[in-house]
Amino acid sequence: MLIKLENITKEYHNDDIATPVLKNINLSVREGEFLAIMGPSGSGKSTLMHIMGFLDRPTAGEYFFEGENTTNFTDDELARIRNERVGFVFQSFNLLPRTTVLNNVKLPLVYTHGKNIHGLAEKAIAAVGLGHRADYFTNQISGGEKQRVAIARALVNTPSVIFADEPTGNLDSKSGGAVMHILQELHRQGHTIILVTHEMDTAEHAERLIKIKDGMIMDDQPITARRIAEPDGAINK
């Protein structure tokens, strides 16, 4: 089992008033799954992704990642997991401005001891079909290309799981489709992908759908009528 959450609870404290965001979440994700977490805003889906992605800590409960109990990991240990075993794709791309595509993709490798940084970054850029854009600055490329750069950056450390938080939220449907195509392609190659979205259309690209509301998992089912995105962004159902 890649990810195993046991009774995960998250509360935010404001002036001693506890606001529960996640309530007793139990969830397992196998290696190679393509999972979509769907819910309205405020449902806790983002918080759940942050906890699964080691960006945040649960208030209570246990988190097993690749068999390891990570509940009591230090900040530096979590940073290391984020760096080596997790990749992130954000809604607003979060690329460094005035920096080339290549240097953006290299960024996670700056914090590892790895060698051949250049080669790994070029390989990741080629994997998202942007080899011809490697030396462009991030303000010189389109939104869809930006998100593909972000995917390349998430890939560059060959992570165990890729988290995509509303990856098509800032894109038109065509470039959004192209991004979904890449994610599906990565999944087909064996990557584990966890997609967070509030749109059913986007969620239906995954294989398994979890619906979350008011901090609780309401539904957990395989997707039967799966959408398939084409390289040019067209969607087949």
Binding site: A79, L107, V110, Y111
Partner: peptide
């Protein structure tokens, strides 16, 4: 924030 998310430690 991004650098931290991508694995930069405090010391980095």
């Amino acid at each position: 924030g991004l650098k931290k998310a991508l694995g930069a430690k405090r010391s980095d």
